[in-house]
Design a protein around this nucleic acid. Structure first.
Lengths: 153, 153
DNA sequence: GATGAAAGTGCATATGA
DNA sequence: TCATATGCACTTTCATC
C-alpha cells in the first residue's frame, strides 16, 4: 500500500506544502516539468493518502484562542478498554489539536487550544470525568515561536 | 489591526479549515450566503492575516519521517542575546515543526520530526552546539493519535 | 511527456434589495 | 451590506497523440 516517491514527487509535495493555492502551471514550472505529469502525480499521491487534507492555517489569536497548553499525562491503566475510551474522548474534543502516545515515563502528550485558562479547566474537568487519569501536568505556552506543517523534504 | 469577525466569517473559516480546495460556490452554499460576500470576506480575512498559509497535510510516514519527538528544554540563560540566538536556531532548523516558550519550570517545548533516532541525535548535537542549554528531555512519540490544524470555531 | 479542448472556477463588475 | 447575474480569463481535468 506504499506509494513509491521519487525526487519529482518530493519537489511537488514541497511546493504544495509551501502554497497549495498555486495553479498547476506554476507548480509545473517550479519543479521543472509540465502540467500532465505533475497532475497525474498529484492525483496518485492523493489516492495513496500521501497528500491528505487541503486546509488553511488560521490565526488562533485573531479568533480569541489565547491559551495553548501542552498536557503531559500519566495513567496507571493500560487495558485496551481504557485506551479505547481515552482515544475516543480525545478525538471528540475539538480543543485537542494534537495527541501522541509516548514511550517512557509519560504516557501521553496533548496540545490543547482554548480561549482562556477557565476554558482549559472546563476541558480538564470534562476529560478526567470521562476517563481515569493518574497524573496530569499542564504546560502553558507564553509564545508560539514557530509553527509549520511543512516536512523538510 | 484587529479584524472584526462575525458569525458568517466564522462559518467561512470553518469551511476553509475543513477543505480549502472547495469552490466559492460550494462554500457560499454551505454557509448560506452567495459568492460575492463570501469572496469579499475571504479577501479581507486574508489581508488581515486571519487566514494564513494555504497548505496540504502530507503523511510523514509515507515520506520516511518515522520519528517524532517532543523536546522539553530548561535553560539557565535568560538574556535577550541568548534568546535571539536560540530562536534563530529553531527557525533555521526545518526538523523543528513547532516551538513554544512556556511559563514555569520548563522553558521551551519543541516538536521535532526526523527520519529516525540517529537523525534526532544529529539534530540534538547541532542544537546544543549552537546555543547553551541547561537540561533537555526528549519524549518519543509511539503513535500520533490525533492531528488537526482546525480550530473549533 | 506533450498537446489541446471541454467543462468548471475565479474574479471583477453592474444592478437591485 | 448582501443577493443575483453576467462575462472573460484562467484552471482543471482528461482523451489523444
Amino acid at each position: 500500500m506504499t506509494v513509491r516517491i521519487d525526487d519529482l514527487d518530493r519537489k511537488i509535495l514541497s511546493e504544495l506544502q509551501r502554497d497549495a493555492g498555486q495553479s498547476l502551471d506554476e507548480i509545473a514550472r517550479e519543479v521543472g516539468s509540465s502540467k500532465t505529469p505533475v497532475w497525474n502525480r498529484i492525483r496518485k499521491l492523493r489516492e495513496g493518502g500521501v497528500i491528505g487534507a487541503q486546509t488553511v492555517l488560521v490565526d488562533p489569536e485573531a479568533l480569541g484562542f489565547e491559551a495553548c497548553f501542552f498536557v503531559l499525562i500519566r495513567t496507571s491503566e493500560h487495558e485496551a478498554e481504557w485506551q479505547a475510551a481515552f482515544l475516543k474522548a480525545l478525538r471528540n474534543r475539538p480543543e485537542v489539536l494534537e495527541a501522541h502516545r509516548l514511550a517512557g515515563d509519560i504516557d501521553y502528550i496533548l496540545k490543547v487550544r482554548v480561549r482562556n485558562a477557565r476554558a482549559y479547566d472546563v476541558f480538564y474537568q470534562g476529560l478526567i470525568s470521562d476517563v481515569r487519569i493518574h497524573n496530569v501536568t499542564a504546560l502553558l505556552s507564553m509564545e508560539e515561536i514557530k509553527f509549520t506543517t511543512a516536512l523538510p523534504l
